[in-house]
Amino acid sequence: MSGLSSLMGQLSILAAESDSPVPFPDIADIVIWPAAFGEGQWYEFNKIGLISIISFVVPALLFFLAGRNAKLVPSGFQNLMETGVDFVEKQIIEPAIGRDGMRYLPMLISMMFFIWVGNLFEILPTANMPSNARMANPLILALVALVMFVGVGLKHHGLGYIKEVLFPPGVPKLLYILVTPIELLSTFLIRPFSLAVRLFANLLAGHILLVTFAVLTIATFSLTPLIAVSALTFPLLIAFFLFEFMVAFLQAFIFALLTAVYIGSSLHPAH
């Protein structure tokens, strides 16, 4: 064990001192962007803000254009956008809430498309940064989800919703000492926290993965004795790009699905 640790220590010192042609960038360099204007003010604007605005405007514009002169029998562009609506309806709302969940479709679809387009910037060349890899975006979205499912519960069941959550029926009276704090924590704290952290950590991990393989490819390519290795790292980099393309969609889908499940659980509490 001591040999292992000392080897690790020596390796990391060596890595810190070696003058590799392409050093691994500092974490601050790959996730924190300088302000374009208004540094330190409330209106500070940087790359993340720009990506967030684009990922809000682009789906809104697409849906607006598709629905401007909507026909009963859709064709072409309208058909394409209706596939997205249909997906949310069939894959998210029906299994998670049921038919009476259709009124939450606008919220879920805008949530999903905002996250998806924001995520796609991770693999878009020249942008290469998902807006959801900073905690602010997922956190706000998770707070929206929290307000939404608590609001739905309060609207449909009044204060009975809180009672239903904290004191689930069918539990022996004595066990409430144990169950109530757990339920309180898991519903109002861990649910939004895990929603936010899931999205944030997935995207940050993907971003760091891509940076790692890009740096590795350049570094091995510029070191002539190791050039053969770059034949291995470069295809892997492309493979991870495709993988992240899938992750971008999957995380948007899962975020919307979980929000729908939480809304469904406050609409129809445990039977």
Binding site: P95, V197, R198, A201, L257, L258
Partner: peptide, 20 residues
């Protein structure tokens, strides 16, 4: 499939907290 993705999302959260 939908239930599977839900389950994956819940299970994966632990690994992601480890990553954080």
């Amino acid at each position: 499939q939908t239930t599977m993705f839900l389950g994956i999302a819940f299970t994966e959260a632990l690994a992601l907290i480890g990553f954080v």
